[in-house]
Structure formats: structure tokens, C-alpha cells
Computed example of a mutant assay.
Amino acid sequence: MPDSLLLVVLLVALAAGAIVLTVASLIKPERSRMVANLHRGERAVVVDAPEASRSTLGSLAQRLTPAPLISLLTRQHARAGRPAQWPVERLLTLKLVWLPVGIALLCLLAAVQAPPILTLLIGIAAIVIYFLPELLLVSRGQERDQRIQRQLADTLDQMMIAVEAGLGFDGAMSRAAANGTGALSEELTRTLQDMRMGRSRREAFTDLADRNQVVDLRRFVRAILQADAYGISVSDVLRSQADEMRLKRRQRAEEKAQQVPVKVLMPLMLCILPVLFIVVMTPAVLQMMETFGSL
């Protein structure tokens, strides 16, 4: 039994190491494949690798994984900015490799009659590791959406100034994308490159809205498409959208400022008030103890 427990501990340590390596690889800062394509001047889309260059395990993972799961992982990967070091094929391979390892680990724990609490913890860890790529991609996608939302108002101001100065809408968007450095400039550059490759403005902007979950960006895309369809002045649309984005940004800042007292209340009650109560009441308690002790 001690040898079996030692083996279980070793396997648990290996599983923990796999978690740490996976998290470190996924969350470390890196240039996305989209950014690399933009700097090379290529179309910023992810093209599937040729069949000869794919690993056998990666091809097997794609064949064994259900199509809805591949589609979901692809959308999450695009929303996260398409991390170059973790393409969809590699994530599917990771999930395919870990599935039999987790099942074998649980079977080993059952064979050595490990404590139920240990089996439960290992089972939870195995499930977390299996869904870890999705969790990290969702987290990175949410952070990227927040960056796009913060940059949208300033970008629309730049586009409005460029249009009023005499540039066309595409030229204004190209100028704003060239001057920007964040996720929004990457998305605008990709949209422009899609149009240069022959796609219509409606198709390119529809893909821009589908790639992102930012509500304000989707509203801007709908306004531009409606202006393009009905012949509305683009400068007026940009001015109204920029004013609305600035107003919403100010409202979000005020909302967060109003949430600060509520968020501070719990740490104040649990951490600061007990210590303050002890500091204030300890001398009085000691004085009372000394007085009653002398009586």
C-alpha cells in the first residue's frame, strides 16, 4: 500500500506540473498570429496547414473531436486574438492526450483503494485540465473585448476627424488602424485587408462583428452598414457614434466608481474593523482585568 500511495502521489505531482506548464504557455504574453500577418502585409486570416505538415496526432484529434466542439474552440480562439503558439490543432491534441491519461489515473486510484477525498480531488483536477484551454481562451477573449471597448471611442474620434478633413471612410479607417497599437487596430486592419482581397464592405464588417463580442462595436458596425445601404452621411454617423461611445464610457466609469464602496465593505468588515476593535478595546479590557483582579 505505501508503494501504491507513492505512485499516486507521483502521478498527482505530474498532473500538477502539466497544469502549471499549460497555464504558463497559454497566458504568457506573445504576439498573435494576426499581428504577425499584419506586419508581413498578408491577409490576417488563419489558413489551415497542409495535410503533409500536420502531425499525425493532430489529424487524429481533429477527426475524433466532434465538429461542434471544433467550431466552438475556433470561435474562442479567434476571439482571444488567435495565439500563434496555441493553434486549434494543438489544443485539440492536448485534450485528446489528456483524456486517456485522466481516465487511467482515476482507474489507478480506484485500484489502489485511495481515499475518496483524494479520488474526488483528482477527478476535479482532471476535468479542469481537460477544459483548461477553453477556460483560458474565454478569459483572454474577455480581456481583449474590454481593451477593444476602451479603445473604441478614441478610434471613432480619429476616424471622424479624418473624414471631416476630406478622407474617405476607408482611408479614415486605415489611418486610425495605422496610428493605433491595440486589438481594435488589428481588427480594423484585418477588415481593410478583407476588402482589399475582394470582399464587399458588408461581408467584411459582418465578419468583424462576428469575431468580437463587444456590443458597442457591433452597434457601430450596424450603423455603418445602414448608412452604406441608405446613403446616409458617414461623417454624421461617426459623430453620433463617437458621442454615444464617449457617453457610455463615462457612464461605465461612474458605475464602477459607485461600486467601490460596496466592494470595499466586505474587506473592511473582515480585515480592518476586527483589528481596529482589538486595538481600541484591548487597553480597556486589560484595565478592567487589573481592577477586578485587585478587588
Rank of each mutant, 00 (worst) to 15 (best):
E290A: 15
A52N: 01
M1V: 12
A16H: 01
T22Y: 00
P267D: 02
T291K: 02
T189N: 07
G171D: 15
V8I: 15
P66W: 03
L14W: 00
G41M: 09
L99C: 11
A176V: 03
T65F: 06
T119D: 08
L96I: 09
V221E: 00
M266W: 15
R175A: 15
L99Y: 07
G171H: 11
R40E: 15
I272Q: 11
A15W: 00
F205P: 07
L6F: 14
E187K: 07
R140D: 03
R144I: 02
W86V: 05
D210Y: 11
N37K: 13
L225C: 02
A257N: 00
L14A: 03
W86C: 08
I127R: 09
M269Y: 11
A49C: 02
L69Y: 04
N179C: 02
E89P: 10
R239N: 04
G81D: 02
S53H: 08
T74M: 07
T282A: 07
L96T: 12
A111D: 03
K95G: 06
A114Y: 14
V214F: 04
L26T: 08
P261K: 12
L6C: 09
M281G: 06
R222M: 05
G141Q: 07
P261E: 07
A67V: 11
Q85E: 15
L286C: 10
I148D: 08
Q241D: 08
L188D: 05
A162E: 09
T74E: 12
L238Q: 05
V8G: 12
S53K: 10
Q213N: 14
L99D: 05
H39L: 08
T119V: 15
A16W: 08
D145Y: 00
A13Y: 04
R250E: 11
R222H: 03
D3T: 10
E244P: 03
A177R: 12
G231I: 01
L7A: 06
